[in-house]
Design a protein around this nucleic acid. Structure first.
Lengths: 240, 240
DNA sequence: CTCCGTTGTTTGTTATAACAAACAACAAGC
DNA sequence: GCTTGTTGTTTGTTATAACAAACAACGGAG
């Protein structure tokens, strides 16, 4: 009987290495780990309360995705973004996300458009109230609402990868950036263009949004220690 | 033989999971595994003569890269490419490889150009002699010679991922395709455009090359069982 | 003959232990 | 005082065993 019940209920038990992967990914995105920091397997395993095997699996996956890099001893380290790497990521992002916006304009559905506009209103509300704690989530949902409309899974997957790569840095700056009201107009314009079915305009707006944020981020490169000017970015043992 | 020697003697101390990863990747690219086939860990471990742990690592990495998919039981299966997926991959490939060609034209170096033309001549020789055994390697080197010229590591990495995804299918058809002399002119034209520094032309030629091959591949979809028309693509348990 | 339950096997998952290489620390020698 | 060799610790790698879920095969009941 227990067997029959189990067969009927369809228990879905998520593997531990998947949990570790999600937790690690979210912590990375939240900027919880400093760039260049090493992530020892046993420490993570202990903090998660599991063995090192699933942690190792999660790390392997993240390294394969380019979200983590591997240091000298094959140790996983959170990547340090140089200005050059940020520019390269921006180039690829514009190419891919621009194309996704173009495709989204081609086959936009009313339901998705409605969700987009709802997100737009929510974001504007949040800006007026200056309550930006959940802004990042809505912002992410808005962008990926557009990209999902393109209905090209490979493209969506790659854009997610790109967001993961520049995630911590972007998450740190977007709230500051958005208070200057520089991003919202692009968002609204992109949404309008998609509703009109104007693919070129949608692509242009998304590209402008991405490049604007990247420019702002780059201008802050020296102010905050978020991204490194040089590629070395190592801990100098000497000095004061 | 190299791997046997490496196994007997301790020449290189490359991790085992790296070896497993490379061997699996090459076998996939060579089309050694039928699409839809499951890859049990213990079988692979036995065939490699190692434990299942490094094999599992390699599989995890390949799944994270999208080179392998995971089936119902989290089992790794070699992905079956549907026509729709192939079209989506082609879209992203055109976007990314086209941009790479454009960037390559912007900062082309004489040494790389020389290597490109050498590859071009080798390919033409091979076509005339109809000895296409090593053609795929040269073809791959030619394309990635262009993409490496763009000097954008993230872009190069993503293009490599895309090639891996449609690898087996493409490897199977390219030799047939190239005997029709349909691809070489695009290659030569792209090379010329890069030398002239004409980014737009280089992009157009690469895009034409990719789309031409994709069209040809799609026309063969029904003839050979390479790609599936439908998404199911189940494994027939019946006779061999 | 067909349907269903039981059982044995397969297979992915996780934990643990043994191992090896690299870094840190400390002590001896010049 | 500085360098160097040795040792202890840290940390990634690999193998192995125990485990659980799913599939296949077999046998009994209707």
């Amino acid at each position: 009987m227990a067997k029959a019940a189990a067969k009927l209920k369809k228990i879905e038990r998520e593997p531990l290495w998947d949990l570790a992967h999600v937790q690690l990914r979210d912590a990375l995105l939240a900027g919880h780990f400093a760039p260049g920091r090493a992530l020892p397997l046993r420490d993570l395993a202990e903090s998660f309360g599991i063995s090192i095997t699933p942690v190792r699996d999660a790390i392997t996956r993240l390294v394969a995705q380019g979200v983590l890099q591997q240091g000298p001893r094959n140790a996983a380290v959170v990547p340090t973004l140089t200005v050059r790497e940020l520019r390269n990521l921006t180039i690829v992002r514009c190419e891919l996300e621009g194309r996704a916006a173009r495709e989204a304009a081609a086959n936009a559905d009313p339901k998705g458009l409605q969700a987009l506009q709802a997100g737009l209103r929510t974001m504007q509300d949040m800006i007026e109230r200056e309550s930006l704690t959940r802004y990042l989530d809505v912002h992410r949902e808005f962008h990926f609402g557009i990209y999902a409309m393109a209905d090209i899974p490979v493209l969506l997957e790659m854009v997610e990868n790109l967001w993961l790569r520049c995630g911590p840095v972007l998450s740190f700056v977007v709230p500051h950036y958005v208070l200057l009201r520089k991003g919202t107009d692009h968002h609204a314009a992109a949404c309008d263009a998609i509703r009109r079915g104007d693919g070129a305009a949608a692509e242009a707006e998304i590209v402008a949004d991405i490049e604007g944020a990247a420019r702002y981020l780059e201008s802050l490169a020296d102010a905050h220690g978020i991204i490194q000017r040089s590629a070395v970015a190592s801990v100098r043992p000497g000095g004061s």
